[in-house]
Simulated assay, not measured.
Amino acid sequence: MTVTVFIRYQIDPFQQREFEAYAQRWLEIIPACGGDLLGYWMPHEGTNNIAFGLISFESMAAYEAYRARLRADPAGRANFEFAQAQKFIQAEERTFLRQVERT
């Protein structure tokens, strides 16, 4: 069963540029560590402090293996450290979803 991680970010609206740079780096890091990256989405119109990321995995076990690879990856660690130092992410929520299948 495929699992998709839906990440909802509350970001500092005055640091959208920094969050976008952070998200752009994940576009290479996540696939290299085994995630099927569906993409990142930035605020455009309306609410200016919410962004999203979606990543799919073939199972929760695959997700856990990915998280271990991500923690060990120098580029992944550097991107996490960048976010912590710049403080543009105010809150982050992860929801694990499965697709509804036709019966």
Rank of each mutant, 00 (worst) to 15 (best):
I7K: 11
Q99H: 12
R77E: 15
G34Y: 12
P74N: 07
Y9W: 01
Q84Y: 15
F57G: 11
M42Q: 09
Q15E: 07
N49H: 04
A68R: 01
A62Y: 11
K87F: 09
F52K: 10
F14V: 10
L27Y: 09
D36M: 05
F88C: 06
Q90R: 15
L38Q: 11
S59G: 07
Q84V: 15
R25D: 06
F96V: 01
L97R: 10
T2M: 05
A65G: 04
T2F: 02
A62F: 03
Q16T: 14
Q24T: 11
V3G: 15
A83E: 09
L97E: 09
Q84A: 13
F80Y: 09
R94T: 05
R17T: 10
M1Q: 14
A32G: 09
A21W: 09
Y9E: 05
L97Y: 10
A62E: 00
A62N: 10
A91F: 08
Q24R: 14
I50W: 04
F6S: 13
Q15M: 04
T103G: 11
A21Q: 11
S59V: 00
A68G: 08
T95D: 05
L54R: 09
Q16E: 14
T47P: 13
I29H: 06
R8D: 03
A78P: 12
Y66W: 03
F19Q: 11
Q90Y: 12
T95S: 09
E93N: 02
E20T: 00
E45Q: 03
Q90M: 14
E18S: 03
R69Y: 07
Y63N: 06
D73I: 00
A51C: 03
A91E: 07
Q16R: 10
Y63H: 02
A23D: 12
A51L: 01
K87E: 12
M1D: 10
E18V: 01
W26T: 04
T2E: 15
E92G: 11
A51P: 01
R94A: 12
I29T: 04
F96S: 07
A83M: 02
G53V: 11
Q99C: 05
A78D: 00
T47C: 14
H44W: 11
A78V: 01
E28I: 12
S59E: 04
G39L: 08
Q16L: 00
F52Q: 05
W41V: 06
F96M: 10
Y9H: 00
F52V: 03
A91S: 08
Q10G: 15
A61V: 09
Q90T: 07
F19H: 11
Q10K: 15
N79G: 12
V100G: 15
R98W: 13
D12G: 06
E64P: 00
E92C: 00
M1N: 13
A75W: 01
Q15Y: 01
R17K: 14
D36C: 05
I50A: 09
P13M: 08
Y9Q: 00
R102F: 14
L70I: 00
H44K: 04
A91I: 09
